[in-house]
């Protein structure tokens, strides 16, 4: 771990002002915001992240959960994962989000991890976290050890010849299905980014993970008003029952009327290089009858474009089953 300077920001503009001096807001940024620190401090200990300056944003007051004018929800960047998961409005109207948050990490970590930190959570690819190995995400141009290496847990969607690392967040999968919006404040004012546009595909620049620019501070996330009549669920499959990242996970938001799917939003985790919306399957389901055949077909369609690596071929089938089962749960066709 390298030495670094620590500054506690008192205001949002002060935090932004300091961070804007950074050359980048991505991997290897010399200036970093720190909130819960559950990912960043780990990575600093591993020498994967080597910022020279940390700006503590814990005292900026961005920790409220409020109703928005249109009936949606505004979640401050510093709302802790456990507080968000246990918020009565979230538990009632956005169950998928609550379930996703509670399936992540451990109770202790959820008590300090924040909404924006979770949004920016780094991959758990073992090569990214091991400085002795080549990794294009950590060190652009060094190569990808995971392709042809230990890739059992890595991505089958959105991969490139440079990177196959999975986005590890559970919360992100729920936010994708809920069509959340990420709100930023930077040197040029505020911006609102649709959730699906916030994370980037690795392509040739896997070190760039989001649209964030130097100085950009995530201030809050908004959720659209809950649709009446919808049910939402999160299903996570993993190697052990807690404190483990997903092999495959599915967030589903559905409304059923007259035995047919009327509204469907699907996203998956553990299998994509970013939180993955399943739009083709959403379209296939919308208007279709709620039955086993339809669900299976849609789930198969969802994974149509999967490109497995040397060790993770099983994830195609596992993810298909995961999505199908999440749909069964949300439609009441299965109870557990």
């Amino acid at each position: 771990m390298e030495r670094f300077q620590y500054t506690r920001a008192r205001t949002v503009p002060e935090a932004i002002g300091i961070a804007a001096q950074s050359t980048t807001a991505q991997q290897s940024a010399p200036i970093r915001f720190v909130a819960g620190g559950t990912t960043l401090v780990d990575l600093m200990k591993l020498d994967v992240e080597r910022p020279t300056r940390l700006v503590d944003i814990n005292h900026l007051g961005l920790n409220a959960i409020e109703r928005t004018a249109d009936g949606g929800l505004k979640v401050g960047a510093l709302v802790r994962n456990s507080a968000l998961a246990q918020d009565p409005a979230v538990m009632r109207d956005y169950r998928v989000l609550s379930e996703a948050l509670l399936s992540g990490a451990s109770a202790q970590l959820r008590n300090v991890a924040t909404t924006s930190g979770n949004l920016l959570q780094r991959t758990r690819c073992m090569y990214f976290r091991n400085t002795a190995m080549a990794c294009n995400k950590r060190e652009p141009g060094s190569g990808c050890s995971a392709i042809g290496g230990e890739n059992r847990t890595l991505a089958i969607l959105g991969t490139s010849s440079q990177c196959i690392a999975t986005n590890p967040s559970d919360m992100n999968v729920a936010l994708a299905a809920l069509e959340a919006t990420v709100h930023l404040q930077g040197t040029k004012g505020t911006r609102a980014i649709a959730f699906q546009d916030f994370h980037l595909l690795p392509g040739d620049t896997p070190n760039r993970e989001t649209v964030l620019e130097p100085g950009d501070l995530v201030t809050h996330v908004t959720l659209p008003p809950p649709r009446s009549g919808t049910t939402s669920r999160y299903l996570k499959l993993r190697d052990r029952a807690s404190y483990e990242f997903a092999l495959a996970s599915a967030a589903v938001v559905v409304e059923v009327a007259g035995g047919r799917f009327r509204y469907v939003r699907l996203a998956m985790g553990g299998i994509g290089t970013k939180p993955w919306r399943m739009t083709a399957a959403e379209q296939a389901l919308t208007g279709a009858p709620v039955d086993e055949a339809t669900i299976r077909q849609a789930a198969t369609l969802a994974l149509r474009d999967a490109r497995p690596q040397s060790q993770n071929g099983f994830k195609v089938e596992l993810a298909t089953r995961c999505l199908a089962h999440a749909l069964r749960l949300a439609t009441g066709m299965a109870s557990v």
């Binding site: 758990r124 976290r129 290496g149 230990e150 052990r240 404190y243």
Partner: peptide, 14 residues
């Protein structure tokens, strides 16, 4: 290759 408690999974109480 998976020499960390993140990547080497042991059972939790659950």
């Amino acid at each position: 290759a998976n020499a960390s408690l993140t990547n080497y999974t042991i059972p939790t109480t659950l």
